[in-house]
């Protein structure tokens, strides 16, 4: 009976890789093998039979792609403005979990991503799910994606044939669709470190807001990241769950950025704030589904855009 079962259900083939090379080799050897990261999306599909893996390469034990580090740090070198701040880039390993993104040290660098991570699922999900997995799944509702979109993140890929980097907008090609090729592994993302450490500048670094119909453990109905790019003095916004892929409302960004005081918090012109919200809302192309309506989603990203802007730049 068990032999029949094994025959019917295919042989098991799970490789727990310890190094990237090992993982890439295994993927190259077996074109049917699928990459397993934190499992929080993958296993739901397996449990509900939307995915029937024939071979798996588990990468969560690959240390090379754990954690984060600062790269190319330079005092003010990337800055276009007057801030004598610290800029550079931040490398985030694909295996970094949402819980790890919520640690204080990381929050100090990229608070918007911390905020996004804290809205993901439950503590258990945040302990297992990874940023690499969020990218790989590429759900329109992926919570870190608006932040990564706003930051023009580079997605780092590796295969047995070598490495490549793709802009997020090139990597996510549709709802749950990516440019990831067979044999490739997401190794991490690289984002600009955008904030000054200059204590005199009290403008916020960025915000992430998410609407769901429950106060915790809820899929995004609409999400918004707003990043104050001090290095280029531009407000960068990423929208989630309001289109097939993360959206950048570039017109709104370009319109509002020069109207803001980049040195200190100030009283914002309510008309400017309102206009900004409307422009962001117009950039969305949401749909009706079982979680909400298109009209509400558009409305919600407008409201969140205004609130995020005021939180970041406004004074009382």
């Amino acid at each position: 009976m068990l032999a029949e079962l094994a025959g019917a259900l295919r042989a098991m083939n799970v490789k727990v890789a310890r190094t990237l090379d090992e993982a890439c080799e295994r993927l190259a050897e077996n074109p049917e093998a699928e990459v397993l990261a934190g499992g929080t999306d993958f296993m739901v599909e397996v449990n509900y039979r939307h995915r029937s893996p024939k071979a798996v390469v588990a990468i969560s034990a690959v240390r090379e792609i754990a954690g984060w580090r600062l790269e190319n740090e330079s005092g003010g070198a990337g800055g276009m403005g007057a801030d004598a701040g610290r800029y550079g880039t931040l490398w985030i390993g694909a295996n970094m979990t949402y819980t790890e993104m919520a640690t204080p040290a990381f929050e100090g660098l990229l608070p918007s991503l911390t905020q996004a991570a804290r809205t993901v699922g439950s503590p258990q999900i945040r302990n297992a799910g990874t940023i690499g997995g969020n990218l790989g799944t590429a759900s329109p509702a992926g919570d870190t994606l608006p932040v990564l979109a706003a930051l023009d993140a580079e997605v780092l890929l590796r295969s047995a044939d070598g490495s490549r980097e793709l802009a997020l907008s090139d990597f996510i090609t549709g709802p749950k669709q990516t440019a990831l090729q067979q044999g490739e592994i997401i190794t991490g993302v690289r984002v600009p470190l955008v904030a000054p450490t200059d204590a005199s500048n009290d403008i916020g670094r960025g915000e992430f807001l998410k609407v769901g119909t429950r106060n915790a453990m809820v899929i995004s109905v609409a999400g918004l990241a707003l990043i104050a790019r001090h290095d280029i003095q531009r407000v960068c916004v990423g929208l989630g769950s309001v289109a097939a892929v993360p959206v950048r409302p570039t017109e709104a960004e370009e319109w509002i950025s020069p109207r803001l005081d980049w040195q200190q918090r100030s009283l914002l012109d309510p008309v400017d704030v309102e206009t900004f919200g409307e422009m962001v809302a117009q950039a969305a192309s949401p749909i009706d589904d079982h979680r909400s309506t298109a009209v509400y989603r558009r409305h919600a990203v407008g409201v969140m855009a205004k609130r995020a802007l005021v939180r970041t730049f406004g004074s009382n």
């Binding site: 905020q115 804290r118 809205t119 915000e207 992430f208 807001l209 998410k210 609407v211 769901g212 429950r214 106060n215 915790a216 809820v218 409201v303 969140m304 609130r307």
Partner: peptide, 11 residues
């Protein structure tokens, strides 16, 4: 706060 409407979404 998480105790506000919107909870963890910080809206």
């Amino acid at each position: 706060s998480m105790a506000d409407p919107g909870g963890a979404g910080r809206t």
